[in-house]
Design a protein around this nucleic acid. Structure first.
Length: 275
DNA sequence: AGCGGGACCTGTGGGC
DNA sequence: TGCCCACAGGTCCCGC
């Protein structure tokens, strides 16, 4: 579900609610929601929340401990993190509930809801993170690199779209932003990833960064389930050029947008604008 | 080694 | 109206 802009938005909207709050208790309603490498939920009890941030599509809550401890959430397709008053009952899709205490002594709850149950929570220190293959292999943040770095990551002959979706190549891009960035960069999703010249690579990175920044500024895209920590929808879906528009007219040239599958994912592109 | 495709789940929307 | 099927923002695992 949420890609980089959506997770960034959740982190930003969650922070003011939970910063400096302390975990009092927690309850896991679906066992499989806890990552296999995770420390038990009870580890959190008494921990104070120092920060809320994002790495790739992961939401990370930094906890105040003598050695670093994190609560890491992967929302996958339908995960949601949001706060609720102390007396609010769990919902049908609530997978984990945390009781938190504010600095003023009052209590409230942090819910992890997840309809499709693909989401994961991981309580870990640095040693556990080092054991987590997915974490170890995560590629660089697209908003923090130059095109020389991107060029060095696009060395395989696979389809450009498949490479962009590979979190080891570059982190945080999912199906929506891959399609939108490729359209903006005027590059075909089927181009071999290693066929781009320097100008095209720079154009691609510029498009990726622009699309991600514009989406963050509009609080992300809401297709179905996505909401930020305050329950609000994003607005970037209203500006999609290609995603979800297969068979419709290209907003730039009027040609019919082509829908296909690349790496098992629905892919929409303009056969006229993207080469 | 690296790639493609299916699996993992539940819900929704379109077609009949 | 209601049923069935395809499809959904992501990653993991398996076989080729």
């Amino acid at each position: 579900m949420p890609e980089l802009p959506e997770v960034e938005t959740v982190a930003r909207t969650l922070y003011p609610h939970i910063h400096n709050c302390v975990f009092e208790n927690s309850s896991l309603l679906l066992k499989s929601t806890l990552h296999p490498l995770s420390l038990p939920l009870s580890t959190l009890t008494g921990c104070r929340i120092k920060n809320v941030r994002r790495r790739a599509k992961l939401l990370i809550i930094d906890l105040d401990k003598t050695s670093p401890l994190y609560l890491v959430a992967h929302l996958r397709m339908t995960g949601r993190l949001f706060t609720a008053k102390a007396n609010v009952e769990q919902g049908k899709h609530t997978r984990c509930v945390f009781g938190l205490r504010k600095p003023d002594g009052s209590s409230f709850q942090l819910f992890f809801d997840d309809t499709r149950t693909f989401g994961k929570l991981l309580i870990a220190g640095d040693a556990i993170l080092d054991k987590w293959k997915f974490w170890r292999e995560l590629g660089p943040e697209p908003l923090e690199i130059g095109s020389d770095i991107l060029a060095s990551r696009l060395k395989s002959a696979r389809a450009l779209k498949a490479a962009l979706l590979d979190q080891k190549v570059i982190a945080g891009i999912g199906n929506i932003y891959a399609d939108e960035a490729l359209f903006q960069a005027r590059l075909s999703p089927l181009r071999p990833a290693n066929s781009l010249n320097n100008g095209e690579t720079a154009r691609l990175l510029g498009a990726i960064q622009d699309v991600l920044r514009r989406s963050i500024s509009q609080c992300g895209s809401s297709i179905r389930d996505y909401r930020d920590a305050d329950g609000n929808v994003g607005a970037f879906q209203n500006t999609f050029m290609v995603y979800g528009r297969g068979g419709e007219k290209c907003k730039k040239c009027g040609a019919l947008l082509h829908k296909t599958k690349i790496g098992g994912r629905a892919t929409v592109s303009c056969p006229h604008c993207q080469k």
